[in-house]
């Protein structure tokens, strides 16, 4: 088993875990089509075996009262998970929102392949980083679009500066 599957202790483990958390998030946010297109050709020798076939269920989403207070159950969302193993024993996990079994399977496959040191660099460069860039661009495009509707108040005379809280004293 690769070190990232064991409880982490050393700095190296923490770094490996963080890297894995990052790519798992990127794989979950990617579309099935994007992952399908990025599949390595050829696939690893011996393929992979499903330890847990893609299974759809729910995840209970939680909020916090007031945004920072006690937890409460907001409602559920659909979630599909999959676990698979490469011939060398490396285990990959896919946890993705929605009901697409192929998405969960592909996420698990990439998760497994990314744990192989001989493949990691190539996959990061060719698959994960481009997806990360696209996702960041999409995110920025959303808020940039919203920012076009930001109110530009023109104040006749600005009487007081900002208070300690950073809030102006005068309301609208």
């Amino acid at each position: 088993m690769p070190s990232v599957n064991r409880p982490t202790s050393t700095r190296e483990d923490v770094r490996a875990r963080r890297a894995r958390q990052r790519w798992m998030g990127i794989l979950a946010r990617a579309s099935t089509e994007e992952l399908e297109r990025s599949l390595p050709d050829p696939l690893p020798e011996g393929g992979y075996s499903l330890l847990r076939r893609p299974e759809t269920g729910s995840v209970m989403l939680r909020g916090r009262a007031g945004g920072t207070g006690e937890r409460f159950n907001l409602g559920e969302a659909t979630l599909t998970r999959c676990t698979l193993r490469l011939p060398d024993g490396t285990t990959g996990f896919g946890y993705v929102m929605g009901r697409n079994p192929r998405h969960a399977e592909l996420a698990a496959l990439f998760d497994a392949l990314l744990q192989l040191s001989e493949r990691r660099e190539h996959l990061m460069e060719r698959v994960i980083e481009p997806l990360a860039r696209q996702q960041e661009e999409r995110r920025q495009a959303i808020t940039a679009r919203a920012a076009t509707s930001k109110v530009d108040f023109f104040t006749m005379v600005r009487e007081s500066g900002l208070g300690e809280s950073g809030l102006g004293e005068s309301g609208a």
Binding site: G57, M60, G63, R81
Partner: peptide, 14 residues
């Protein structure tokens, strides 16, 4: 009909 597979961390709306 859905099995509950997980519970999320509280959503961080900030």
């Amino acid at each position: 009909t859905l099995p509950r597979l997980a519970v999320s961390a509280p959503l961080d709306t900030s």
